[in-house]
Write a protein that binds this DNA or RNA. Sequence first.
DNA 1: TACAAATCATACTAATTAGTATTTTCTATG
DNA 2: CATAGAAAATACTAATTAGTATGATTTGTA
Lengths: 196, 196
Amino acid sequence: MTKASNTRHTILEKAFDLIYKKSYQTTSIDEIIATTKVTKGAFYYHFKTKDEMGIAIINEIIKPTMQDTFILPLQNTSNPIEKIYQMTKFLLLENPFLKLEYGCPTGNLTQEMTPWNIEFSKVLKELVIEWQTTIEISLQKGIESQKVNNKVNPKQVAYFIMSSYWGIRNFGKIYNNTDCYHAYLKELKLYLNNLH
Amino acid sequence: MTKASNTRHTILEKAFDLIYKKSYQTTSIDEIIATTKVTKGAFYYHFKTKDEMGIAIINEIIKPTMQDTFILPLQNTSNPIEKIYQMTKFLLLENPFLKLEYGCPTGNLTQEMTPWNIEFSKVLKELVIEWQTTIEISLQKGIESQKVNNKVNPKQVAYFIMSSYWGIRNFGKIYNNTDCYHAYLKELKLYLNNLH
DNA sequence: TACAAATCATACTAATTAGTATTTTCTATG
DNA sequence: CATAGAAAATACTAATTAGTATGATTTGTA
């Protein structure tokens, strides 16, 4: 990693932290360069606009992380129902990257930037579709291997699971307490067990 | 309604529209007074700060509307399971007040203002708790009248339903298409039927 | 009708915003 | 080691922001 590409990456990481905590709109470039200790000249050498940086955060920070935590685990399992539960539990209670009071980075950005920034919507939609497709495929495979009841509709279930996840993260924010996560997880388990 | 209180209410309604569409942070007071055709002097006569207006919108616009569409229907039903489905379907597909591409007003504000504005968090939390309590009580009544299986845990189910609703509104935003609502509703029906 | 209080209008301010213009300092390569 | 281009530093701009100061109108009521 050259010094320059290191500067770029530092900006993206620190900016992500700020945006995850404070939202995109309320995070100013002056704030980003203050916390990264990078000058405005350096910032604008690497990113033509604030939005270009925002898109880069999604593609270069959020996307790879999501690949590891949302996509790969589901691709390497023969038991999607159990894996979905484990994944969700990990994401809500154990993942050090995600914080109760700040919600879900992708969910936050989706709510904030859609529909008013087409570019953001586009890359976020790609992310979401990849997640959704992965869930659907894993359930379809589960049906084929008779781990999942063949009456299950993978698309519907995918929407239901993803929605409830995004939603409960919003509840976590407002209650600022993991109790709601625990209650949610119990009900999620009951729901998932009915898919067997 | 006096002329003054009419001015106040106009500001709140128009500001709500803008904030629902564009978010709170990106809606400026100049924009609000431009669309309401009210002067800055009038605005600041009625509201000491922008945040005071924001809180007023929640208490005087969102709360009463929510009372009518989220609370009362559930209080006047003997069959909560069926009513929850009907309500959700109405909210997603028929309510003229809510728009696919703009999501859920309360969900948007929660995501945007929590945890960074304590005052907003407080009133939003009150709103959410009222909704949650209503669902729980209606399910409890349903258990007592044997419309709902007595193994059902009202608190857990309430979280699950509310979460999935907030979440699917986020999906509606990003897909900008009601297909996801229809798929979600089908799965919601299956889930709810298992509570009988 | 008079007049005090309520309501609204106008013109401002100081801070913050994203972005630019220009110069300086590195860094890789001949 | 010389030098061209990459990378970064500095100082600015124009627009927008929430909020204020002050003056002009309405409005209800004695």
